[in-house]
């Protein structure tokens, strides 16, 4: 379906990202748009669906047994948080919000998660730190986030992110659509102080997102991959 919000340039860029032909700054720009522009992200997904049947024509090959063994080791034995564990950590964060409610006064921010399952935690008026979750467009991982605007303190709950050699890098994407790196964060829960120069971007309409990046060269100017988690800021 033609999307009236997409310029012909962006339509073309979405097709090119799905096709895989982009590199360098063009790819970075396209990946950035998948974070900041839902219509663009939807067009990329539509192209992936259109092209996917072609992948059925690739000749099959048998991988060595070490692959399954490694997969099994990574998803088993606590290496992976089960949904129940994630829920527990979310509840912990909700608890933390009540405890630290006295810290901030006045301004409360809430993260409204993106698709597929918007899940906003209603915060009682007594608490001024709002808690919600970041979620992935096509992943079951979620992350609870709380922000204290007075101290510039951002608290992140644990999330079951890709356990590869890459590390989660947090981005704030204000309404200009340009992602600013807030640095590498720990996937098992973290607390970071947002740089004074970046705090002005932590405002209504901004998006928080996490991409998996090379920790040694962080913070980066732009994301190199699609986000694994994203959610929107809105002031309540």
């Amino acid at each position: 379906m033609a999307d009236p919000h997409l310029s012909p340039e962006h339509e073309s860029l979405a097709a090119e990202l799905a096709l895989g032909v982009l590199e360098g700054p063009d790819r970075a720009e396209a990946l950035r748009l998948t974070l900041s522009d839902p219509a663009f992200a939807a067009e990329v997904e539509a192209w992936r669906r259109r092209l996917s049947p072609l992948l059925g024509t690739v000749v099959a090959a048998v991988p060595s047994p070490r692959v399954w063994n490694a997969v099994e080791a990574r998803i088993g034995e606590g290496g992976e948080m089960l949904p129940s564990a994630r829920l527990r950590s979310l509840r912990l964060w909700r608890g933390a919000a009540f405890v630290s409610g006295a810290i901030a006064a006045g301004l409360a921010l809430i993260l409204v998660s993106g698709p597929p399952a918007p899940s906003v935690v209603v915060v009682p008026p007594a608490t001024s730190i709002a808690v919600s979750q970041l979620s992935g467009a096509d992943s079951s991982a979620t992350m609870a986030v709380a922000y204290d605007p007075q101290k510039g303190l951002l608290r992140l709950g644990a999330a079951a992110l890709e356990g590869s050699a890459k590390s989660p890098e947090l981005w704030i994407i204000p309404e200009d659509g340009v992602p600013r790196s807030l640095g590498i964060v720990r996937a098992d829960g973290d607390e970071i102080t947002v740089d004074a120069g970046l705090r002005r971007f932590m405002s209504d309409g901004a998006t928080l997102a996490i991409t998996m990046e090379d920790a040694s060269s962080a913070p980066h100017k732009a994301p190199s991959a699609a986000p694994v988690l994203a959610g929107k800021f809105s002031i309540i």
């Binding site: 997969v71 992935g136 992943s139 079951s140 991982a141």
Partner: peptide, 10 residues
């Protein structure tokens, strides 16, 4: 396959 494990529910 680790991604598939995490996304299967979606």
């Amino acid at each position: 396959y680790v991604k598939i494990w995490r996304r299967a529910a979606t």
